[in-house]
Nucleic acid binder design. Structure first.
Length: 290
DNA sequence: CACTTGACCTGTCCGC
DNA sequence: TGCGGACAGGTCAAGT
């Protein structure tokens, strides 16, 4: 579900809401959502205080003062929603979104000493939480192989081009989605940035020159930053830490706009499948030798 | 090795 | 309205 901007929005919300709070207890339903040894949880999570909330790629990193870190991956349908000690009453704008938590998709409930709660909801059960010593986070298999953060100032055009070219014989869309090439890009921002750069998602990386890849890099940064500004995009399940929706989707140019006119040229936007994912393209603006 | 395709799950939507 | 199938913002394992 959430990509870099959505996870970053959740991170910013949680930073304001849970840093400094001490965990009173933790409950979870399936092993899959939180496959930790209960002894470790009771020793290093229960009774520990939240020190900071970080993010790497699409993974949230909640650091505790026990020197353990709670890693959270929301995958497709995960949500991390905070509900304060004072429940929202009828008429509050958030009441309909979080007023009924926990519900049947709640996988993990964390209660803080002040009576507030953090709910990890995940309809499809692809997401996970895991607790591990902070020093071992970098050794975790995904963290070890994931590529650089696109929003780091050190991630230059040159590095973007070099890394994308590691996937010379695949489509540019598959290269963008490859988390070992760069971190955090998913289906929405792949389609949006390719539209911005007028590159067709099926075009082979080796057929795209440096100038066009540089343009793609700039378009990618533009959509990622714009989306963070707008609080992420809400298409289906995504909500931020306060249970609210983001508004980037209102600014999307192609994503989920099939059969609607291209905002640049008016041609009807098409939907197809590229790299196994639903893909939105303007057939006129995006072509092989733009 | 590089790359592509299923599998993991549940809910919803679309066409017959 | 009912039912089957396709599909959903991610990643991994297994396949070619």
């Amino acid at each position: 579900m959430p990509e870099l901007p959505e996870v970053e929005t959740v991170r910013r919300g949680l930073e304001k809401l849970i840093v400094g709070k001490t965990i009173k207890n933790v409950h979870h339903d399936t092993e899959k959502s939180f496959p930790n040894d209960p002894v470790v949880v009771s020793e290093f999570l229960v009774g520990a205080k939240v020190v900071s909330v970080g993010r790497r790629a699409k993974v949230l990193l909640i650091d505790m003062d026990s020197d353990y870190t709670l890693m959270v991956h929301l995958k497709m349908t995960g949500q991390l929603v905070f509900v304060g000690e004072e429940r929202f009453g009828a008429g509050h704008p958030n009441e309909s979104l979080v007023g009924s938590l926990p519900d049947k998709s709640t996988r993990v409930t964390i209660m803080f000493e002040d009576g507030s709660h953090l709910y990890f909801n995940d309809q499809r059960k692809f997401g996970w939480m895991k607790l591990l010593p902070t020093s071992l986070v970098v050794e975790e298999p995904f963290m070890k192989k994931v590529g650089p953060e696109p929003l780091d100032v050190s991630f230059t055009d040159i590095i973007f081009i070099q890394r994308i070219r590691k996937r010379a014989n695949t489509s540019i869309k598959a290269a963008l989605l490859d988390q070992t090439v760069l971190a955090g890009v998913g289906n929405i921002y792949a389609d949006e940035s390719l539209w911005g750069a007028r590159i067709h998602p099926e075009e082979m990386v080796k057929d795209i020159d440096d100038k066009r890849l540089k343009k793609l890099h700039h378009e990618l940064l533009y959509v990622l930053k714009l989306s963070i500004e707008k609080g992420g995009s809400t298409d289906r399940n995504y909500v931020n830490a306060e249970g609210k929706k983001g508004s980037y989707i209102d600014f999307a140019r192609v994503f989920r706009r099939e059969k609607l006119p291209c905002p640049r040229c008016g041609t009807v936007i098409e939907k197809s499948k590229v790299a196994g994912r639903g893909t939105h393209t303007c057939p006129k603006c995006q072509h092989a030798s733009a």
